[in-house]
Nucleic acid binder design. Structure first.
Length: 301
DNA sequence: CAAAGTTCCTGCGAGC
DNA sequence: TGCTCGCAGGAACTTT
């Protein structure tokens, strides 16, 4: 599900639902996701108020009033579903089993994958669901972001002061393909498989092109690399807009809504016509580092 | 068979 | 020649 725009959409949804509320209970329905939950997770959260919610790369950072921070990553299939007080009553049955979520039906699953339930003082509930369990839920101290092993090596935010000169510096020696480089979170964060394909298509760059061929000998970016940076930012910004517009009525902050309303130019369009004006090419699918890449061999060089 | 993500391991080549 | 380091590529995690 989640690349930067989807995570940002989830962040905004959680912000509306959680900030200012206090945890009254937290239920863990298993002991781990990708990693074990920290032992003190439940005890630490109960009685704490949520002060703010930030995003770094594809991670969510939920700031608590005692200086702890919940570090949450959605992996491939993680999502949050929010229930206000009324909806909790609506979906809760009196004979809840300990093994299954109270909210399985409402979240579209049978409840087996609702791993964490956060209960708040106003009666609302947030449920974390993650069938593949590639997600992460950890607890850190505020200020620890920069030294946490999962965060320390992360590259620049695309919406920050990232630019073509910076990218050129990172790529000028790289022999790996530009598509694989874009997915490397040490080079720039937030870009995943879908938006990497889309940004390369928009900027007319072949995904298998060696990264360093996009940098001039004097170390400055080529015009194509300028275009790539512009298109990465554009495609992510537009996706955030789409996700934001799908949020309005809360309840489900599923980032999938962001993808749902989005029509891609190349991703998942194998054998279909290239949509670039006047191109006339046909979209191909190849594999790079074990992941599907979609491209138009005619307009991407 | 493939899937929106990330980490870890192995093998290879460069350089000392 | 032999060793270390870094990079590049692939496997693994899991469920639908």
């Amino acid at each position: 599900m989640p690349e930067l725009p989807e995570v940002e959409t989830v962040r905004r949804g959680l912000e509306q639902a959680m900030v200012g509320r206090t945890f009254t209970n937290v239920i863990l329905r298993r002991e781990n996701l990708r990693f074990p939950f920290p032992e003190n997770l439940v005890d630490t959260l109960i009685g704490r108020r949520v002060d703010s919610i930030r995003r770094r790369a594809k991670y969510l950072l939920i700031d608590l009033d005692d200086g702890h921070v919940i570090l949450s990553h959605l992996g491939m299939s993680g999502r949050y579903t929010l229930f206000d007080g009324e909806k909790v009553d609506q979906f809760t049955t009196p004979n809840d089993s300990d093994e299954r979520s109270r909210f399985g039906t409402a979240t579209g699953f049978d409840g087996r994958h609702d791993h964490v339930e956060f209960q708040f003082d106003d009666g609302s509930v947030a449920v974390y669901t993650d069938p593949r369990r590639f997600g992460i839920m950890d607890l850190i101290a505020i200020g620890e972001e920069a030294i946490h092993p999962l965060l320390e090596a992360l590259g620049p935010e695309p919406f920050g002061d990232w630019n073509a000169n910076h990218l050129a510096q990172r790529l000028h020696k790289k022999t790996t393909s530009i598509k694989v480089a874009l997915l490397d979170q040490r080079i720039v964060v937030g870009v995943g498989n879908i938006y990497a394909c889309e940004a390369l298509h928009r900027s007319g760059i072949h995904p298998q092109r060696q990264s360093k061929t996009l940098v001039r000998k004097d170390g400055k970016p080529t015009k194509k690399l300028d275009a790539l940076v512009e298109m990465v930012v554009e495609v992510l910004e537009q996706a955030v807009e789409v996700g934001g517009s799908s949020l309005n009525d809360f309840a489900d902050v599923n980032g999938t809504l962001g993808y749902f309303g989005h029509h891609f130019q190349v991703y998942d369009r194998e054998d279909e016509p290239c949509l670039k004006a006047g191109c006339g090419g046909t979209i191909e699918r190849i594999t790079q580092s074990g992941r599907s890449t979609f491209l138009c061999p005619r307009c991407q060089r």
